[in-house]
Simulated scan of single mutants.
Amino acid sequence: MKPSLSWDEQVSLLVGRGLDIDDERKCAEFLSVHNYYRFSGYMRYFQIAPHHGDDNFVPGTTLSQVRALYDADQVLRSAPTEQLTTAELLLRTHTAHVIANDHGPCGHYLQAEFYSDASSSEPTVESCLRDIERSRERHILRYAVPGDRMPDFGELPVWSAVEAWSFGTLSKCIERGAQGSLADAVATSLGVAKAGFAYRVRALVYMRNRCAHHSRIWNHSIIDAGPTPNNVRVKAKRIAGQFEPRSALDVIASLDDIVDRGKAGLHMLPKLVEAHKQHADFWKGLSHPQNPQDHRL
């Protein structure tokens, strides 16, 4: 068991490992706000071989050097918020529109046979109903029968229901709805490529959750990366240069495409290039994420 350390003891630990700290008092104040464990995710890239138990810093590493990357990542996490919100609203709107027009506004979308669920995952209907039942919005509560312990919301129109679903539940509905055909229909409604669309939506949910929970984006390989269309990648690489398929930049290129096709906003990628590309170490961690390197000779 690792002992719990005070802020000052955490600073002493870093100094003992060879980190150059100009102002130890300010460093302790920083750690009291930002959490040593969170900050350690950035420090590992400057340590000799943390995956082999050597947590000493590469000689010459300064706190300011690590802080610059941490601060840039903090700014980056707030950048996609508006675009992700716009994309989420577009997806709610077009999903409800497609379901209502193609399958009827009520009932059918809350039936198990509407979805192609896997036995290893929670049934999509349960996710949909749980989110609806949690809602305290008047437009939802008016459809709950008073005194009914298990309301089925059979008369709740889908355009009302989608407003209660989490982004994750919405993503499941798009991926599995209408026995797998809903994703194609929503993509067509938005005017984007059908191939891999459901997985692109899943990647947006993953990115939104990381940003919302202040998780590291720099040097992070996106687990639920969607298959961004080749024409979208080619266009994005003209602006940003080369980037990996599982990089944050790939998801942002996909996000720009979805929002742009919805005629709902401006591209985000050019703004990131302008703000961050001159910071070579930070940009490399966005475009070509990798694990900490072994700095042992």
Rank of each mutant, 00 (worst) to 15 (best):
I140P: 13
V125D: 06
Y115C: 03
D71E: 06
A144L: 09
E113A: 15
L89W: 02
E113C: 12
H94L: 04
D117H: 10
T124M: 09
T85M: 09
D148K: 15
V145A: 12
T95K: 09
L69G: 00
A79F: 05
A100N: 11
M150C: 11
A96S: 09
S121W: 06
E88Q: 14
E113T: 15
E137M: 13
T86A: 07
G104P: 10
E82W: 07
P80F: 08
L129D: 03
G53P: 07
T86R: 10
Y70Q: 01
S120P: 02
L89I: 11
G104C: 06
Q83C: 04
P146E: 09
H108I: 11
I99A: 03
S135W: 08
L63F: 13
Y115Q: 08
A96K: 08
S120C: 05
D71K: 01
P105R: 13
L84A: 07
S64V: 05
A87F: 02
Y143H: 15
A144V: 14
L91K: 12
H51P: 04
T93P: 01
N56R: 15
N101G: 13
D55S: 15
L90D: 01
Q74A: 05
L76H: 00
T62E: 03
D73K: 00
R142H: 07
S78R: 00
A112E: 11
P59E: 03
P123Y: 02
T81P: 03
M150A: 15
H103T: 12
N101I: 06
G53A: 08
H108G: 03
A79T: 05
A144D: 10
T95C: 09
R77M: 04
G107E: 05
S121F: 08
Q83Y: 04
N56V: 04
R142Y: 04
T124S: 13
Y109E: 06
P146D: 14
Y143C: 14
Q74D: 01
S116G: 12
L110M: 13
L63T: 03
R136W: 04
V75W: 00
D102P: 02
Y70F: 15
H97L: 04
G53L: 05
H108Y: 10
L110H: 06
R130H: 12
E82K: 03
H108E: 05
T62Y: 01
D102S: 14
Y115N: 12
M150I: 13
R138D: 09
S135A: 15
S78H: 01
D148A: 15
M150S: 14
